[in-house]
Design a protein around this nucleic acid. Structure first.
Lengths: 140, 140
DNA sequence: TTTGATGCAAATACTTTGCAATGGG
DNA sequence: CCCATTGCAAAGTATTTGCATCAAA
């Protein structure tokens, strides 16, 4: 809320009500909304808001590191407010549910994997796909 | 080569020269080509080959598990022949280079992460983004 | 010969951009 | 007031689909 306003202002950006609305939707969305879904939800409140504003806001929030863009096996992305702790995703190929799990992995990787020794890690994305315990029974 | 022919035939698919060519390009591409690049390379040999054939072939190869589709931070995907051993990707945000590393992680995750206990893992994708040792010096 | 695969063109999905109008600081 | 931001429409990029023709088995 107010912290976002400060972050934007510090970056010479304005805290418009469109931006406030979009951020709020992403926050409530528990991190699993795509651009179009964010747009549809925003329109319920602000019927004149445009899809370009959604895309432009997402772009900006990525740059300011306020949100993360997640890359699932689709032709579009999903967004979530940047979490403070490390967390990753489990995608069920049966029902599409996304289960989030927190686990401190990047320190482990850095230590274990030789290729990572000389690498300055910015972010780690892990996506485990498979079938959840509900779907595995009814599979196929 | 011949093994692919057998796999296709078993699935009731035909081993066309377009498919052979596309598979060959993906194999040579060391796993870091997108659909359009595959198309451009294929056209050098088969000038009448169409982009839809590339997409249709990629789709089919994914289903037959002959290739993997990789999801980087872009609006399109990259493809590689399905590796037999576990391996993951390091993407340099400076030069765009993709460094591949092999590491047996899924057994470890399965054991360590409670959310994975009840989950039937199909595939694990890890993407570590950051700066390689060449780029980290000249960064910004 | 049969039917799955291809090329082409057109359709769809997702994202970005130009520009005049608007509104936050 | 100024200039970043917006809405709208149009363009750009990525992918899919319908259909007549072609070719693998």
């Amino acid at each position: 809320m107010t912290t976002n306003r400060v972050k934007l202002n510090n970056a010479g950006k304005r805290f418009t009500h469109q931006r406030a609305l979009i951020m709020d939707i992403i926050r409530r969305g528990q991190g699993h909304l795509d651009a179009d879904e964010i747009f549809r939800r925003a329109r319920e409140k602000e019927s004149r808001l445009s899809l370009s504003t959604v895309y432009r806001t997402l772009q900006m929030m990525k740059e300011l590191e306020l949100v993360d863009e997640l890359h699932f096996s689709e032709n579009h992305h999903h967004y979530e407010v940047k979490p403070t702790k490390e967390h990753y995703h489990l995608v069920c190929l049966g029902c599409g549910r996304v289960i989030e799990f927190g686990y401190p992995l990047s320190r482990y990787l850095k230590k274990e994997v030789p290729e990572l020794k000389d690498f300055d890690i910015d972010e780690t994305e892990i996506r485990v796909a498979g079938y959840c315990n509900l779907c595995r029974r009814t599979r196929r």
